[in-house]
Design a protein around this nucleic acid. Structure first.
Length: 306
DNA sequence: AAGTGCGACAACCGCGATTAC
DNA sequence: TGTAATCGCGGTTGTCGCACT
């Protein structure tokens, strides 16, 4: 028995969304909140399938999305996380709450991946030229060894973070952080918790909102303010634009080691769960020497990209 | 000015996971 | 408990705009 299509092929509009369609969708979500996507086409009169509506909302219309150029910091985070998590864009996006998984995926596929490949090529060329010249100071490994080291280092990175985020290091702050999650990530809140502080710098960049989403954002502005008061009751539904229950804390990646570990242990287990899956592939062994996070960061940044 | 190539990004498709009944 | 409906994710495609020839 084949899987039925998510929507009728006939009578369903495809292609770019018009501003009118956007307004219809946003108006409905303003009133009813996101969710129940199946009902949206019939309720709104949109000739779109439910999937298309959901995608349009999550990738483009929902408030809190930052558009435009990626900052160096964001870029580095993506590189870090991609190295550690692979192409799990939704998981990566959960640590860049103003970016959508689609956005990150596109950026990776169209820019970062090529840049990394180029860098790799340069390193290989550098090796071949350097190896022919004994006067160079830099010690370069043979090709196979370099690749093996790369794989080893990635595994070490996984293990180090798995260790850092292991359940025994978690304390009882999870609930508090969960409650603060949505608030700290909202565009207008001025919460005093550490998570909101870590996000505040990003919030300054929301002005880069682009194109007709500006208009939609204005429509939503008042609604957002109303909803901010209700967020605690909405748990993790992501109404103001943070999907799922996953959490963001830049100190995970940019703080010093102690801050990082502290932060990791205070977080909910979103990252832990990510790495627990990786852990299955390469479980750390007892007594193994673990690499400090700043060394991983240095390696990833110094030797992969720049 | 027209044609071509390429980058950026919105949107679609198919599959697996989850939820509802 | 089984099945269908729905949702979410990742890979891929299509389209647009810009730069270059």
């Amino acid at each position: 028995m084949g899987r039925p299509p998510c929507c009728d092929k006939e009578g369903v509009k495809k292609g770019p969304w018009t501003p009118e369609e956007d307004i219809l969708l946003v108006s409905y979500i303003q009133e009813h909140g996101p969710g129940n996507w199946k009902a949206i086409p019939s309720k709104t009169g949109l000739l779109r399938c439910s999937k298309s509506c959901r995608l349009r909302w999550t990738n483009y219309l929902r408030p809190g999305i930052k558009r435009g150029n990626f900052t160096n910091q964001e870029e580095n985070m993506i590189i870090h996380l991609q190295a550690l998590l692979g192409n799990r864009w939704a998981a990566i996006a959960s640590y860049l709450p103003q970016r959508t998984d689609n956005d990150i995926k596109n950026y990776w596929n169209t820019y970062l991946k090529k840049r990394l490949s180029k860098k790799l090529e340069e390193e290989k060329e550098g090796f071949s030229s350097i190896s022919s010249s004994s006067s160079q100071k830099k010690v370069v490994m043979p090709r196979g060894q370099w690749e093996r080291r790369l794989q080893t280092d990635i595994n070490m990175a996984k293990k180090a973070l798995t260790h850092a985020l292991s359940p025994q290091q978690n304390n009882n702050n999870n609930n508090n952080n969960n409650n603060n999650n949505i608030e700290s990530l909202s565009t207008s809140s001025s919460s005093s918790n550490s998570n909101s502080n870590s996000c505040s710098s990003n919030n300054n960049n929301i002005s880069s909102y682009a194109s007709n989403a500006d208009n939609i954002a204005r429509l939503l502005k008042g609604w957002m303010n109303n909803n901010n008061n209700n967020n605690n009751n909405n748990n993790n539904k992501g109404i103001i634009g943070i999907k799922g229950s996953e959490k963001f804390d830049e100190s995970l990646l940019y703080g010093n080691d102690e801050e990082c570990l502290e932060s990791c242990s205070n977080n909910n287990n979103s990252l832990s769960s990510e790495f627990s899956q990786s852990q299955e592939e390469s479980k750390p062994e007892i007594g193994e020497v673990l690499m400090p996070f700043h060394l991983l960061e240095k390696w990833l940044l110094d030797e992969t990209i720049m």
